[in-house]
Structures are given as structure tokens and as C-alpha cells.
């Protein structure tokens, strides 16, 4: 799987190996931007959570990994999107311990704790979660 080391920006997510691919993309860009291993793991884990949700609730979706660095900060932004039924009660979903899929319940609330910026929009037909991490340039 040599393609895993190539920089890629959008991954279509349909199954477990796509989750792994999306994680590698996030990790690769994060490493290139100078994020340490701990941050790389946080990002990869966030991507894992979000893309797994996509597969569980919408069947398929996409994960976008982008470099949104500016003069002061190196920044990586990840957007995971699907066209599934949407999250009925966003506030509830963001609470700790909440989960409909039977997972440990860390889900969205846990993911939010791993990143700096976290935004979520959801309506039937489109759910979009965007997360980002930044690193001050020295």
C-alpha cells in the first residue's frame, strides 16, 4: 500500500480500509506541517471517529484534509461529510456518554476534546463536521 504515503486531500469513505486511508492522509499532512506524534495521533483518532460514524449512519461519505496554514500558525483542517439522515438532536449527541450505535460513547464529545476547533452542522441529507489543530510557527 505505497499510496498511503502520498499526500492526498479527499478520501471517499465506504469501508474500514478507507478509514485507515483517511487517517494516513491526516497523519501525513500533520507530520509535514511539523505536528508531533501526540498531535498526529489525536488527529488520526478524530478522523477515525468521524469516518466511522459516517459509515455507521450514512453508509458512505468523504473526508477532506487541508492545509490552512497562515503566516503565524501551521494549521490542518479536516472536514468529514456525509449525505445521511443527519443527527436529530445535536446537543444530545454532543453530550458525554451519548451513543446510539453502542460504541463506548466517546463519539463526538470525545473527539471534540482532541482538537482545537470543532464545528458540526447536521440536517437530513447533509452532515458536516470540521475539526482543526494549529501549531505556532517559530
Amino acid at each position: 500500500m505505497n499510496t498511503l504515503t502520498k499526500y492526498c486531500d479527499t478520501v471517499t469513505v465506504r469501508n474500514t480500509s478507507d478509514i485507515v486511508l483517511a487517517r494516513s492522509c491526516a497523519r501525513a499532512l500533520a507530520a509535514r506541517l511539523g505536528f508531533g506524534k501526540a498531535d498526529q495521533t489525536r488527529l488520526a483518532t478524530a478522523v477515525s471517529e468521524l469516518t466511522r460514524n459516517v459509515i455507521m449512519y450514512a453508509g458512505s461519505g468523504e473526508c477532506n484534509v487541508t492545509d490552512t496554514s497562515d503566516a503565524e500558525f501551521n494549521r490542518i483542517e479536516i472536514t468529514v461529510k456525509d449525505h445521511g439522515p443527519g443527527i436529530a438532536d445535536i446537543e444530545l449527541a454532543m453530550q458525554d456518554g451519548f451513543s446510539t450505535g453502542g460504541s463506548m460513547g466517546a463519539g463526538l464529545a470525545g473527539t471534540r476534546r482532541l482538537v482545537e476547533d470543532f464545528s458540526l452542522e447536521s440536517a437530513p441529507g447533509l452532515t458536516k463536521v470540521t475539526v482543526s489543530l494549529s501549531l505556532r510557527r517559530t
Binding site: 501526540a38 489525536r42 466517546a106 470525545g110 473527539t111
Partner: peptide, 15 residues
């Protein structure tokens, strides 16, 4: 368990 896996689990609030 890898060290940063442990850290991420704790940060997520994973039991």
C-alpha cells in the same frame, strides 16, 4: 498500548 494511544484515550474521556 502505544503511549500516545493511551494519552488520546484518556483525553477523549474513554473509560
Amino acid at each position: 498500548i502505544q503511549p500516545f494511544v493511551a494519552l488520546t484515550l484518556v483525553e477523549m474521556g474513554q473509560g
